[in-house]
Nucleic acid binder design. Structure first.
Lengths: 334, 334
DNA sequence: AAATTTTTTGCAACCGGTTGCAAAAAATCT
DNA sequence: AGATTTTTTGCAACCGGTTGCAAAAAATTT
């Protein structure tokens, strides 16, 4: 059976308090005592129980890592990055899949049960009600990929999706396209709405360019492909801004199946620059969302909130860049 | 501040014991008392602290979910399935990324610190020393995608990789190929070794067919692509069994870049049947590893071990099936 | 060496729960 | 109605840690 602090105290012939102080950062203990305790602890294979100590300290060092997105390939990178960044700080992610959840309160109650020190909501499609509910319960919370304007009292880390929509529009205009279109993800998602808004706003400054739009029903290959197949039968633009890379890949697939050439017949620009976008044969021109920075910043923010729970809510938006690959033709030289 | 059991007891005018019994399954409490306590608890927004109760019960209901694989797209599905299956049983996954870890003992100590009820090691490439170390510490452990023969004292759930190698070989022979090859993942990974063994053993029964092999340095698109580019410059077989789907997609990409046709010039069969294998333009013939069943079974096994830690170690191997798509030509009719 | 200051140590209470057991209350049997 | 059995309840100790505080020990100053 696992050794406890009491066992170590008995073996070292000291008080339990001495043992505790030996393993508590910043506590006062003499070098001689420390050595004696460490020796006994080692002999017994003792390891402090983080959960027992959390009762007194109020800290578990666990962070709820919440997502409803387990199908978009970029989220594998997201989880990789989050786990690494949290682990580096001695924080532990309690992973929660909210793909089938509709009630914010039940999520809050579960997090409270496990006394997580904070919560990271990693989703652009989960209702803002979720991060708001955590905050309302007084939990430190960061909404990664969320939208600041909808939830000004919650810390948000991500990109300016409106600006990305603008960037995409500008990229298509620069290619001299006369008919461009937005092909978005789920219409209700804040990311879709912002990207659409940015795109349409920028295109409004180019009245000579025909602009249309439509939505896929989710951020997936199949949804992108199906929507493009529909468009190819009705109203085909010269170039498309697809709401994200996995949509773009589905769109690319449908275009190729129709015997058309990308970028010569139809141009494409995606968003995210997930690993697959750079794969040969895909070679997607896209707008790079700096996932690494977004995640490191999210973790930095949650860690800061552990020390300062009243920290004033902030939005950290990272700039995006167009990554030129093979799905858009060269820009016109002015 | 969060209400505690003591607050509820005061408010309901009963003992703390009565409150505890009200929230403890199977404990004796009268309907009248239960109602009174529930009312007070509701008014205070009380929720039992799972970690405090774990000190007495010895159960946190947390399960360590350990992986070192955050780059192979199939693992997004793996995490989706694991989180759902665990959550359905009221278990909570503490996610651990061991991509950069080499010391099993430090992982064990971390898991002990959090008093997880059990550990699921989800990896085909992590050394068996890890799952063995957990077991040696008396923790319930299931190694998903592990190899039984290497670790007979640990519960293993997965597929018979040797048999999959055989199946792949048979599929290529049935196409009448005169030169076939195995293109595997990391040579040291047990999954690679077993798939190779099965493939070569089956091919040994067909001495008239030339058989060669090589290894990519990881299970990734780039690694598969690079190795195929190398092979196209030296020793090209008619058909390949690629160690998994993501390798296959990289291989497919290199073949297409060389202006060759799949399946007419070169045939391919992968392993896993991850979502992307069925994408149009990939349309990969592959061997389906039943991920859903493997994961449900792993979770079922870990749950069973919580009640019976001395449960005799077992290996649960699931059958695989060839999924015919477009990367292998039709079989010869005998 | 004595006085003063600083550091270290153990005691005991605390954190938020659970549970064995004896006493009290309720239910059932005669 | 009394006796017996069953259920319910509160007490108090426990789970494995932390920490305020007073006393003791060590270090420093005079």
């Amino acid at each position: 059976m696992a050794a406890t602090l009491k066992d170590v105290a008995i073996r070292a012939g000291v008080s339990r308090s001495a043992v505790s102080r030996t393993f508590t950062d910043g506590a006062s203990v003499s070098p001689k005592m420390r050595k004696k305790v460490k020796k006994a602890a080692e002999e017994l294979g003792y390891r402090p129980n983080a959960l027992a100590s959390s009762l007194t300290t109020g800290r578990t060092k666990m962070i709820g890592l919440i997502s409803n997105n387990f199908h978009n390939p970029i989220f594998l990178t997201v989880f990789d990055r989050f786990t690494r960044a949290l682990q580096e700080r001695g924080l532990r992610p309690l992973l929660v899949n909210l793909s089938d959840e509709t009630d914010p309160q039940s999520s809050v109650q579960m997090m409270r049960q496990y006394s997580v020190d904070g919560v990271i909501v990693a989703s652009s499609t989960l209702s803002p009600d979720f991060s708001k509910a955590f905050r309302d319960w007084g939990m430190p919370v960061v909404h990664t990929f969320g939208r600041h304007a909808t939830n000004p009292h919650v810390h948000v880390v991500g990109i300016d999706n409106v600006e990305c929509g603008r960037m995409a529009a500008r990229a298509l205009v620069a290619r001299g396209h006369k008919h461009v279109a937005f092909l978005g993800g789920p219409e209700k998602a804040t990311s879709t709405q912002d990207r659409y808004q940015g795109f349409m706003t920028e295109m409004a400054m180019h009245p000579k360019v025909k602009t249309t739009y439509s939505f896929a029903n989710q951020y997936s290959f199949e949804a992108g492909r199906a929507e493009m197949q529909r468009l190819l039968r009705s109203d085909t633009a010269e170039a498309y801004f697809c709401g994200d890379d996995v949509l773009s890949i589905g769109v690319l697939s449908a275009i190729q199946d129709a015997g058309l050439n990308v970028p010569n017949d139809i141009g494409l620009i995606g968003l995210n620059d997930m690993e697959m976008a750079g794969w040969a044969n895909i070679d997607l021109t896209t707008i790079r969302q700096p996932i690494g920075q977004i995640i490191n910043s999210s973790v930095e923010l949650i860690a800061a909130m552990l020390d300062d729970p009243e920290r004033y809510p902030e939005a950290r938006l990272f700039p995006c860049d167009v990554v030129e690959r093979g799905t858009l033709r060269p820009a016109l030289t002015d």
